[in-house]
Amino acid sequence: MIQMQENKLFETRTDFTTLCEAVAKIKKELAKVIVGQEAMIDLLLIAILTNGHSLIEGVPGVAKTLAAKLLAKSIDAGFSRIQFTPDLMPSDVIGTSVYNMGKGEFQFKPGPIFSNLVLIDEINRAPAKTQSALFEVMEERQVSLDGTSYPMQPPFLVVATQNPIEHEGTYRLPEAQLDRFLFKITVNYPSVDEEEQILNVHDAGKHRVQTDAVSQVLTASELVAFQKQIFEVTIDASLKKYIARIVSTTRNHRDIYLGASPRASIHIMNAAKARAAVSGRDFVTPSDIKEITSPVLCHRIILSPEKEMEGIRAEELINLLVQSVEVPR
């Protein structure tokens, strides 16, 4: 009789060992500085493997920007940071054409968006005009200016941070832009134990040393290869239907004013594939889908005015919706 061990019974069709090792290394590097926040780091890693943009939301001082900076530092790729302010103009982000006296012609001067990993800090402090500058580059990964398209070099990932909308001096992001983000990752306060650990690290003066100690463990070309490998993950037809049914419930619910788009379904599927790959599997399970549904959907739906007045959060409603959909088995 053969041994009843799943790893002996089934030979994996796609080998994700290298990918899993790389993910473990990045996590180890980030853990040198960031205490706790494992869920945020896991989602950020899934996002970069899915080639998706992330929006990190949380109150000031919970390591949103630090996490994005350290993630960029652990990858050997171009990095730029844009601080969004109320007076920021679209040309400050995407670039502009400047007249070259010597050649007698206009030349395109690329903006800070032309990089591999772009950190947009406090994205909701800029008005809608500047936000709209990101529409094309985030979805089509190119910038069109004066009739010319300038493609971005892969990998191109935006990691944006924002304070909750209720805070002073913030604008609500347009729905079209929110839809372009793969995840909205909500960062909460650390637990008491974690906060004590943070204090110990800072008290010993190790914090700054450790920030510098974060080293590059992944190259841009390796990341692009991993992103391609994610598409080799198998997803059963019943699970695609499961995703479609979850997303469809957001469109027919009386407490939801605006439901999720088909892009949300695609993002759930891709993120579930990445989660499966990070777990070393080459196929998706319902748990993969269920785990990432809330971060994919929570920023794409708009609650009805009654529910907003009642103080219901989108995450709570999404969890209820997911509970109403049968897991295929």
Binding site: M1, I2, L9, F10, R281, F283, V284
Partner: peptide, 21 residues
Amino acid sequence: VVFDYVWYGQFQVNDQQFYAI
């Protein structure tokens, strides 16, 4: 794990594997 591999992962199972499972 076995069910996940076979059902969601669409892995084929031969006679011997099936009896073990």
